[in-house]
């Protein structure tokens, strides 16, 4: 009985793995023949692929880096500061975190328009930096933090920055990596914002490339998919352990 269940589980895993594997295999199979012509056409005929690729890379890394800088102090504040309405504010963060993008896209658009950064890179990067997801997850993780290390640090220095960097960050390193990975994946996958908030083709990301399938020939799409997968795969291989250990979301009290 156990063997059967094991086998079923493995089968299921194979099924789940299938789309990824198939995409990779099919990229070498353009037009029914084995060959590299898909990649060939992608690399040497499709120049806007590069622009969009580097845009995606830029947005993802910059947003992830900056968001980590913002959420570390914020989560720390939630953990250690005392003020009225702290839990209510945190609750508000949670609700905001759960909002689907479509609800926020109009506010986003209007906000950016009024700030004059609508068709710019800043318009994509800035809102994403302040997404509440990281704060919530990091704060939950900080509950298991050791306060004495921070106390010891307080005796040594007055600078909050140093305390955060040397006493807090090392303890929550795992969670930071996990959140970073998650945020990166989110940015890498970003579709609505570049599509709706950017006019200039030069600023758009690779996800838009895929949504615009009329202008690209079919055999380019599979290789493009594979190339698109690689950066996030690399990061996952780096941080997969942290991903599983760092997301303790369920203690929401």
């Amino acid at each position: 009985m156990k063997q059967l269940l094991r086998f079923l589980l493995l089968l299921l895993a194979a099924v789940f793995f299938l789309p990824t594997l198939a995409t990779i295999l099919l990229s070498f199979y353009p037009d029914g023949q084995v060959g590299f012509s898909g990649y060939d056409e992608l690399f040497f005929d499709c120049f806007r692929f590069y622009t969009m690729f580097w845009n995606s890379v830029l947005y993802a890394y910059v947003i992830t880096a900056l968001q980590l800088v913002v959420i570390l102090p914020a989560a720390f504040a939630f953990s250690f500061a005392r003020f009225k309405g702290k839990e209510a504010l945190f609750f508000f963060y949670i609700i905001l975190m759960m909002m689907p993008l479509q609800v926020m896209i109009l506010p986003n658009y209007i906000g950016l328009r009024d700030m004059g950064i609508l068709n710019t890179r800043a318009g994509i990067i800035l809102p994403m930096i302040f997404s509440p997801f990281g704060v919530v997850v990091l704060r939950q993780y900080m509950k298991s933090m050791d306060g004495s290390v921070i106390e010891a640090m307080r005796l040594e220095t007055n600078s909050m920055v140093r305390i955060l960097l040397h006493a807090v960050a090392p303890q929550v390193k795992v969670c930071l990596y996990a959140v970073g990975l998650f945020v990166f994946a989110e940015c890498w996958n970003m579709l609505e914002q570049p599509m709706l908030l950017l006019q200039d083709e030069n600023l758009k990301t690779l996800t838009v490339f895929f949504s615009d399938t009329k202008n690209v020939s079919d055999q380019v799409l599979y290789p493009a998919s594979v190339v698109f997968m690689i950066p996030i795969l690399l990061l996952y291989l780096f941080f997969h352990r942290e991903l599983e250990r760092g997301l303790t979301l369920h203690e929401t009290n």
């Binding site: 789940f16 793995f17 990824t20 895929f210 949504s211 996030i232 997969h240």
Partner: peptide
């Protein structure tokens, strides 16, 4: 085996939609 289930979460949708 866990990777098979966790990976879809991170992979860009655009990549697998074709398939």
């Amino acid at each position: 085996v866990r990777v098979a289930f966790i990976l879809p979460m991170l992979l860009p949708t655009a990549s697998v939609v074709l398939f």
